[in-house]
Design a protein around this nucleic acid. Structure first.
Length: 422
RNA sequence: GGAGAGAUGGCAGAGUGGUCGAAUGCGGUAGUCUUGAAAACUAUUGAGGGUCACACCUCCGGGGGUUCGAAUCCCUCUCUCUCCGCCA
């Protein structure tokens, strides 16, 4: 959620920025500032009322001690009046605050100046393309065929025991999953990320903290008996570890990584998008999360992008990096880079990582702060990215590295799998 | 699942219905001393709102109530811990 102080000082900048998302927020922000003004006035009135009431209470206390009952009784009457007033003012302030909050949470993050304007994926800006796109000819098999032939992934068994979108990995398929998780975690750890193993379910406060609620309510699996949500990404528990914390300067930048299973309902998806490993309800992902000084966060973002690019290079997969346009960016992001790997048989790009800087959008809600050089408390910036999401990486590995009925694993992976070919 | 205990500042831990945003200790920060460090001593040290800055207001798990006045009394919810049961 945007900081009200930011909107007070930079309302026009926010309006201009949000246009890049295709949103005209002018009236909205006007309303917000208006409500903010009213709210502060109400708060002020309330405070004064309370101040007087406090003073009277103290005076009454003194009078009682001196035994001046009658004088105290007079003041009690005034106090009763104030109490009525306080009630009204309190209700008023609360009502204004809720109205303000409601508008505020509906406003997405303001895109960074580098973010191109645009409506959809077509307006994204390709900023790098790395690796050779090989023409595998007519015989190239899509990953689901390879996975089925070699009994790596059993979609049928997943359907049997759970449902569509919950595949069973078997044999070398299962070992490949385990190897990839280890490979990513090791790479991340070597790059300075501390490893965590978080809970897979989170409470409501956590889901709000990272912005899954109220924006993506229907995308999460929910367990009403316990009021818990299955995490759609490790970003949620990992970032929430630092909720309500004040970090010391030495702790920044804080770099964390975690493997987790991720759960997404993916309501409304269909067709080729959900074929094979393209889109699942449960999948594995290794995530990286950073908390940084505001002035450093875009450097950190570039650093994270470099790191993810390094992983894809080691996997010898052709990929491209996109800078998402305003309209394609997530609600909470100020700037996002997507990584897409080439799917040699499907002949299309598959998103495998999304690296974003949220600036204070998440930390404002979560109250993740740091004590600055000036000894004052400021909001930190938060960032995260996938490093990496497994299913589409597996798809790309199988498709791109197939040759003569075999799949040759990249060298970097071989020590983790314990086998070179599938 | 059953029974009991508890929830106070970074941590530990006091707190009689009024001057308690809260003793004390530890920790943190700054200083004195020291060649340097340790120790000792001194000072300082919660967060949010508000203000140019003060003032002022809010917060002792959450919500509600009693009272002129609540960390303190009452109700309720949540959570944590201990014991028992079950169990990877």
């Amino acid at each position: 959620m945007l900081q009200i102080s930011y909107l007070r000082d930079n309302g026009e900048e926010a309006v201009a920025g949000l246009k890049k998302r295709g949103i005209n927020a002018e009236q909205n922000i006007k309303d917000i500032l208006n409500l903010d003004q009213q709210r502060r006035q109400a708060q002020n009135d309330l405070d004064q009322c309370l101040a007087e009431a406090n003073k009277i209470s103290k005076t009454i206390g003194g009078l009682f001690k001196e035994g001046k009952r009658s004088e105290a009784d007079v003041l009690k009457e005034r106090s009763a009046e104030l109490k009525e007033q306080t009630k009204d003012l309190q209700a008023q302030e609360e009502q204004l605050r809720h109205a303000l909050d409601e508008l505020l949470v509906q406003l997405p993050n303001v895109p960074f100046h580098l973010v191109p304007a645009g409506k959809s994926a077509e307006d994204n800006e390709e900023i790098a393309r790395v690796g050779e796109i090989k023409d595998l000819g007519e015989n190239a098999k899509p990953h689901w065929e390879i996975a089925e032939e070699k009994k790596l992934i059993r979609f049928d068994l997943g359907v049997k025991i759970t449902g569509a979108g919950f595949p069973v990995y078997q044999g070398k398929g299962a070992r490949l999953q385990r190897a990839l998780i280890n490979f990513f975690l090791e790479e991340n750890r070597n790059a300075g990320y501390e490893e965590y193993q978080p809970p897979l379910f989170v409470n409501e406060a956590s889901a709000y903290g990272t912005g899954q609620l109220p924006d993506k309510e229907g995308q999460m699996y929910y367990m009403p008996e316990d009021n818990l949500y299955a995490i759609p990404t490790a970003e949620v528990p990992i970032t929430n570890i630092f909720r309500d914390e004040i970090l010391e300067l030495e702790e920044l930048p804080l770099k964390a990584t975690a493997y987790s299973a991720c759960f997404r309902r993916e309501a409304g998806s269909y067709g080729k998008d959900v074929r094979g490993l393209n889109r699942l309800h449960q999948f594995d992902k290794v995530e990286i999360v950073c908390l940084s000084l505001p002035e450093k966060s875009f450097d950190i973002l570039e650093e994270m992008v470099e790191h993810v690019a390094g992983l894809l290079k080691k996997l010898e997969l052709p990929y491209r990096i996109l800078r998402l346009c305003g309209g394609d960016m997530g609600f909470t992001s100020a700037m996002t880079y997507d990584f897409e790997v080439w799917s040699a048989a499907q002949k299309r790009w598959l998103e495998v990582s999304s690296v974003s800087n949220f600036q204070t959008f998440q930390t404002n809600r979560m109250k993740i702060r740091y004590r600055g050089e000036d000894k004052k408390i400021h909001l930190a910036h938060s960032l995260n990215g996938s490093a990496l999401a497994l299913p589409r990486i597996v798809a790309a590995l199988l498709e791109n590295h197939q040759e003569g009925g075999e799949v040759h694993l990249p060298e970097a992976l071989q020590s983790f799998t314990g086998f070179k070919t599938i």
